[in-house]
Amino acid sequence: MHAEAGQVIDGADAKALAQMGITRTNDGLTLNVATLNAAIAATPDKVAQLFSAPGT
């Protein structure tokens, strides 16, 4: 799963991911659940689009 998550980061805009609570650290990925939930509530179409984009 870590490899797949890394591919999402590599294939996506890091700023967009950070706005959704997903950031890369030296230890791997960090997920801020509250930020992700807020992004899903505010713009579910953008969150879905990010995760369904080709190459992610």
Rank of each mutant, 00 (worst) to 15 (best):
residue 46 K to P: 05
residue 41 A to E: 10
residue 43 T to C: 08
residue 54 P to S: 11
residue 36 L to R: 06
residue 1 M to S: 05
residue 44 P to D: 07
residue 4 E to H: 07
residue 51 F to G: 10
residue 19 Q to S: 07
residue 46 K to G: 10
residue 6 G to F: 08
residue 7 Q to D: 15
residue 12 A to I: 02
residue 28 G to C: 02
residue 4 E to S: 03
residue 54 P to R: 10
residue 4 E to Y: 04
residue 1 M to I: 07
residue 49 Q to H: 11
residue 35 T to P: 04
residue 50 L to R: 04
residue 25 T to A: 03
residue 48 A to S: 14
residue 53 A to E: 13
residue 14 A to F: 00
residue 51 F to Y: 13
residue 40 I to R: 03
residue 47 V to E: 01
residue 27 D to G: 04
residue 47 V to T: 02
residue 41 A to M: 08
residue 53 A to T: 14
residue 41 A to P: 00
residue 52 S to E: 15
residue 14 A to C: 00
residue 53 A to S: 14
residue 48 A to R: 14
residue 35 T to I: 09
residue 36 L to C: 11
residue 10 D to K: 06
residue 3 A to P: 05
residue 31 L to C: 13
residue 4 E to T: 09
residue 22 I to A: 00
residue 16 A to Q: 04
residue 54 P to N: 11
residue 17 L to W: 01
residue 3 A to W: 05
residue 3 A to C: 07
residue 48 A to P: 03
residue 9 I to T: 06
residue 45 D to W: 08
residue 36 L to K: 06
residue 36 L to F: 11
residue 30 T to N: 15
residue 44 P to I: 05
residue 37 N to K: 14
residue 52 S to T: 15
residue 52 S to W: 10
residue 28 G to H: 04
residue 43 T to Q: 11
residue 8 V to G: 08
residue 37 N to M: 10
